[in-house]
């Protein structure tokens, strides 16, 4: 079973996202900020990371830059999922190595097609 790390400081968003991603056949873990997410990746690298931007301690973009800098044999697909919905943010995320970008609010259909487009699901 593929693994997905859901990173968001809102418990409600994590819960909603988790339900959607689990339905796509993923085993889910959660993190409340970028630092927790980075630690979780160090312990066990997931196949996918669904990533919020604005979080305390460490933001989503800082986490992504750090993750891509460390490198390693197995790099997860990273999908931003954030209320930041302007082109400069999207461009910055993609330059930092994000694979897809979801603008909140989202629904299961959006998550599903994005996961499918980057090859996480059939």
């Amino acid at each position: 079973m593929k693994a997905c790390l859901i990173v968001d400081d809102s418990r409600v968003v994590r819960k909603v996202a988790r339900r959607i991603v689990e339905e796509l056949g993923f085993e889910c873990a959660e993190a409340e900020d970028g630092q927790q997410a980075f630690d979780a990746c160090q312990a066990s690298m997931p196949d996918a990371v669904l990533l919020d931007w604005n979080m305390p301690v460490m933001s989503g973009i800082e986490f992504l830059e750090k993750l891509r800098a460390v490198g390693g044999p197995k790099q997860p697909k990273v999908i931003f999922c954030t209320t930041e919905n302007d082109m400069p943010h999207i461009q910055r995320a993609m330059q930092a190595g994000a694979d897809e970008y979801v603008m909140k609010p989202f629904d299961s259909e959006i998550i599903k097609t994005k996961f499918s487009q980057i090859g996480l699901i059939e």
Binding site: M87, Q91, M94, E100, M103, E109, I110, T113, Q117
Partner: peptide
Amino acid sequence: QRGLPIQFLM
């Protein structure tokens, strides 16, 4: 967001 890859949006 429905079906459009982010690269195409950009």
